[in-house]
Design a protein around this nucleic acid. Structure first.
Lengths: 173, 173
DNA sequence: AATGAAATCGACCAGCA
DNA sequence: TGCTGGTCGATTTCATT
């Protein structure tokens, strides 16, 4: 389109392909990647290390299924706070520290925080909500139960449109 | 507490420790884990393979930082649909397929879906919203911008309280 | 930034508790 | 079934270009 100025950093095609691959599966031998991307094994390794150093790859993690742990009860909980002081940042940190709270977003608008809570049963859900309400400065909460997690394991490159990729792309190799 | 019947499967202390470790950092050599958990390299390897086979470990993935890609604009978008047919499931799938939509939850209550959208700029945000509205059966949307992602990379075991762990625990070794 | 060779580490096997 | 120790193959590292 018209705007080709890169926001953020730039990546070549190989990096984008490599990253899209490993963000879905890092349990690979380098031979496959090597052939797939047409580069030597050492070069793949070198690029991966550089991407780690740059902080693009924050880490390598095991993706766990919550279901075997009985963690199949999920709720989206909105949290409103009193706006007397600049407490908001602290309250966010406190929310993030509560067991069972998986994600915390600080939002604009009528509510201040949206959290995603994951627990094993209703009793634990009540406990989490009680903990939230117990935080100083929290005014009220409102929860919605999740009936189905249609897509719940965030990916970065895999979710980008071609246009989004174009914006951060630089050379072709 | 009173309820000690395990929901889901059971794990021993070593598995829980191992899983908590690798869900935050799988970029370790087995020697470190071996010492840390007081088990031989082979045993660690054996347990990891078994946990993969059981589906507890769904995969090994690279955790990417969205910021270097300029993906720093995030919104929580609620989607309401018409309730004439049993379309809901299909609509969820269609939402999940849209570029820029990172997470999709099917919820009870006044709205039907909550999505998390991640893009590079307002123009792309508009495009995503337009795509959502363009889905047949979608009635209306409502979006909130995220000002701060306080906690946005879901973890499973690391977020469990001691009580939650107790519920799925079995032997001590 | 990429290569090929050398050192290191992980995957696999047979045997054992 | 779960663990050990040892072997082989793969990966990481490094000197070189």
């Amino acid at each position: 389109m018209s705007n080709t100025r890169p926001r953020g950093e730039t990546f070549d095609q190989t990096d984008v392909d490599l990253l899209e691959y490993v963000e879905n599966d890092f349990d690979v031998n380098l031979n496959v990647l090597s052939e797939e991307l047409g580069l030597s094994k050492s070069a793949i390794h070198y690029r991966l290390e550089k991407l780690k150093d740059r902080g693009v790859i924050r880490g390598i993690t095991a993706d766990l299924d919550p279901v075997p742990f009985g963690l199949d009860m999920v709720a989206l909980t909105e949290v409103s706070v009193t706006h007397e002081q600049g407490y908001s940042e602290d309250i966010g940190t406190e929310l993030a520290a509560i067991d069972g709270i998986e994600q915390v977003y600080y939002t604009m608008g009528d509510v201040d925080f949206v959290t995603i809570v994951r627990v094993q049963d209703r009793e634990q859900m009540n406990e989490v909500i009680d903990e939230i309400v117990g935080i100083e400065g929290v005014k009220e909460t409102s929860s919605r139960f999740v009936m189905d997690e249609i897509k719940s394991t965030p990916r970065v490159v895999s979710v980008m449109s071609e246009e989004m990729k174009r914006v951060v792309q630089d050379g072709d190799r």
